[in-house]
Structure formats: structure tokens, C-alpha cells
Design a protein around this nucleic acid. Structure first.
Lengths: 228, 228
DNA sequence: CGGGTGGTTGATAATTCTCAATTGTTGTGG
DNA sequence: CCACAACAATTGAGAATTATCAACCACCCG
């Protein structure tokens, strides 16, 4: 059984978990006026679709969500995986520019966007938190840009594995929480290339695959592959 | 003579220009407490380097700046071009995560980062503006992600040309303000592929090249190439 | 036990890169 | 104003990487 965990816009996750504010219904720690409504989504269920009115913003409580864009011929690019503690669904305009779907059974908090905006307009502290969150997401997006623009398939997969490991606790052994298709659509590759690359990394002794989606990383060797 | 203009994080540019606040020394319109110091950079001059302490943030007044990341073997990815009105250099941590360089002779305003942060902490309005700016940059970064992850060379170049056109006034005829190397490093391609793709687009009647970096777009045909 | 989904592997094709040669552009000093 | 140097851009041929198409395997769940 694969664990119910996932990947990407991390960083403040650690803090959230440490503070135990994860099952609070509040948008930020110490911000009692922004109360969200808990809401469950099933595996593969859509949270919102591209082009829909962006009436709500979301915070992951449990499970994981991916956001992606699709071209009209079906090519898909995943722009992020959102884990417990992560906020997603913020937009500058009126409409969502991505589709968001639950990777697995997931619980989120839903906040009225207008409410959040009003709170930000009133409280510099709230606005600063939102600013910091956006800046952080920007950094992650730019890291992905470098990965997609300038790294080989092997480097992409190795970097991905190390990132997942880190976000899942850094033990070096874990089960990948997403399908090959999700990995491929995140890394800008095909599922076949992802599969072959994993096999190659295993052959090179950079990881082991005891079965299923489980992997056990030889982190020193993987680091040498990425070597940025 | 190539115009002194450039490309990317646009959008509020229009507003800035319309308000004529471009040659003001203020960070945002209607924010008199944040005064920047004008500073000139020469062509190809570095504004800041990756890893440097992020003591200042910047606003372009005139000219253009690019921000990029490099891998240790020299592969480079440009993450954005910054035009008059654009802010850049914001970081979540203490250090810059990019290198910023002037594309051409450029004038910027320099603001102490601490000062901006203090102003944001005091004024919800300032913090909201900064939040909006970051969200906007995030959207642009995610668009680039889709481009790099899932589009062909031809689509990338066509999309790039249309974007430059739009940011340069939308006339359909202009001189590309950057070298082939800059274009390639922005689109995740080589200069040869960029060059060949431009030749192919010209052959297909999607644009004309009167000479030098000048191009004249057949926008309807280019749009059909991108067809998202 | 069987069907469906997800994952792996192989053979081949397509795209893009690399290396090399050539041409074009720009700026400078005679 | 011209010649030339230095750099930028184009083009070609061949190589490398990744995608595509197809077959097969494994596992899970009824």
C-alpha cells in the first residue's frame, strides 16, 4: 500500500507540521479571522478546472493535489504537487489558469478568495504571509524551469527522486506517491523514458527497487548525477 | 539601430506607462515612502550574481535586464526578461538565486530590501502590491514551464515572437532586442535550432526578416503554429 | 481466475544537438 | 569612406537523445 504522501511546494510544510497547526481550520497560524471549510476529494477528483471562476483558494490538510495545464492536443505539464500545509489556487485574474486534481483521497480547507483578499487588504501581516508564499512558489517554479530547459532525462529523474525523498522525510527509502504518467508530465518526458531512466539508475547502483513504487536511494551517487 | 527595448514580466508595465510614473523614483504609484536611487548599468553588466547577499531590490526604468541560472558545466537558463516598470531581485531567503545582467544600457532604481520589507510590514497596501507582483511573476514562470516541458522548437519560437511583439507594442514589426544565445537560453534550445526554426518560419511565410534582427510577423499564421 | 491498469522493455523514428564551415553585421582605426 | 577585425547568425552533415509504437509482464481487485 503506497503511503498517502506527496511532493513539491514544500518548505513551510516542516514549520506547519512542527507547529501542529495542520488540522486547524485557519489559513495561517495566528490568523483567526480566516476560517476555512473542510472538504474531501476522492482519488483523481477535480478540485477546479482551468478557466473556471477562481472563487476559492485552498489549503491541503491531508493527501496531495497536483496542478497542471494541458494543450489542446492533450500534452500535459504538471506545474506542482501540493502537500499538507500548502496553499494553492491563488490567481491574479478572475479565472483559474490551471486544473487542480487530488492525487489520492485528500482533505482540503476551502476559503473564499474575496475573504482572503479583504483580510490581506486590512492586515499587513496577512498580506506579507501571502507575499512570502507567492515568492516561495515562484522560486520553485524557476527551479523547475531550469530543470526542464537545461537538464537531461537522467538528471531530471535523479533530481526528482531527491526532491521527493526530501519532502517525504529524507530517509532515502519511500514509495513514490504518483504514477509514471504524473512523473513524466512533471519532468517533461514520456513514461517510457522515465521508466528506462529508473532502470538505468538502478543498474548503475544509484538506487534499488524492492518492488512496486518503492525506491531506496543511494543519495551520494544520485547527487553526483545531478551535480549542479 | 536596434531599439532599446525588451521582453517579459509585462502586464503592469502598461499601467505604469499610462500613469506616467515610469520616471518617478518611487517603488509603486502612490507610495511616497519608498524612494529608490537611480543607477545605470552598461550593456552586459552584472547587476547581481547568484549567491550574493540580497541587500537590494530593483525596478527597471529604462533598458532591459535578464535573470538566469547556470549549471556548473555552463548550461544556462534565462528565467525572465525585465522591462521598464518591472521589479526584480526579490528573494525569500538571504541570497540571490539568480544572476541579473543588463541586456543593453539600462537605468534602474535601487531600493534597500529591508526598507521595502519594513514598508510591507507596516502597510497592507504595499504588501498587497508586492503579493500581486509575485503572483503575476509566478504565472509567467508557469507559462514558461509549459513551454519548456511540452512544446516543440517551432512552437517555442513562435510563442516567443508573439510575446515579444506584444510587449513591444503589438505592431507586428520590430527588432529582437536580444541575441540568439539569449533566445536559445530562454527557450531551452541551441542557437542553431533557433536560427533554423526562424528560417523555417520565414520559408513557411509566417514572418519576414528584412535584415539584422528585424522581423515582421504574420501573426495569424504564427498563432496557428502555437494553437494552444 | 480474469480483466484492467500501470509499468517495463525493445525496435525504430523523429527531433534536437554537436561540430564545422560560411556568411553577415557592426564598430573601429587608418 | 573603406578595410578589417570581432562577433553574431546561418547552414550543413552526422550523432545523440528522446519519442513513438508495440509487445509483454506484474500486480491488484473483483
Amino acid at each position: 500500500m503506497a503511503p498517502e504522501i506527496t511532493l513539491l511546494p514544500a518548505s513551510h510544510v516542516a514549520a506547519s507540521v512542527a507547529l501542529g497547526c495542520n488540522d486547524s481550520t485557519v489559513l495561517f497560524a495566528g490568523c483567526p479571522e480566516l476560517i476555512g471549510t473542510p472538504f474531501p476529494y476522492g482519488r483523481e477528483e477535480e478540485v477546479y478546472g482551468e478557466g473556471e471562476d477562481a472563487e476559492y483558494v485552498y489549503k491541503v490538510i491531508d493527501g496531495a493535489v497536483r496542478t497542471h495545464k494541458v494543450l489542446n492536443d492533450g500534452r500535459r505539464q504538471i506545474t506542482g504537487f501540493h502537500l499538507p500545509g500548502d496553499l494553492f489556487g491563488f490567481e491574479q485574474g478572475e479565472a483559474h489558469r490551471h486544473t487542480a486534481e487530488a492525487l489520492t483521497d485528500t482533505k482540503v480547507l476551502i476559503f473564499r478568495r474575496r475573504g482572503v483578499e479583504r483580510a490581506a487588504a486590512r492586515s499587513a501581516e496577512v498580506a506579507c504571509q501571502l507575499w512570502g508564499m507567492a515568492t516561495n512558489n515562484l522560486r520553485l517554479a524557476q527551479d523547475l524551469t531550469l530543470l526542464l530547459g537545461r537538464r537531461t532525462a537522467t538528471e531530471r529523474v535523479a533530481a526528482f527522486l531527491m526532491e521527493v525523498d526530501e519532502r517525504l522525510g529524507g530517509s532515502g527509502t519511500f514509495a513514490l506517491p504518483m504514477t509514471r504518467r504524473d512523473i513524466a508530465d512533471y519532468l517533461g518526458l514520456t513514461i517510457e523514458t522515465v521508466s528506462r531512466t529508473l532502470s538505468q539508475l538502478e543498474e548503475d547502483g544509484a538506487l534499488q527497487r524492492p518492488g512496486g513504487r518503492r525506491v531506496s536511494l543511494r543519495r551520494a551517487r544520485l547527487r553526483r548525477v545531478v551535480e549542479d
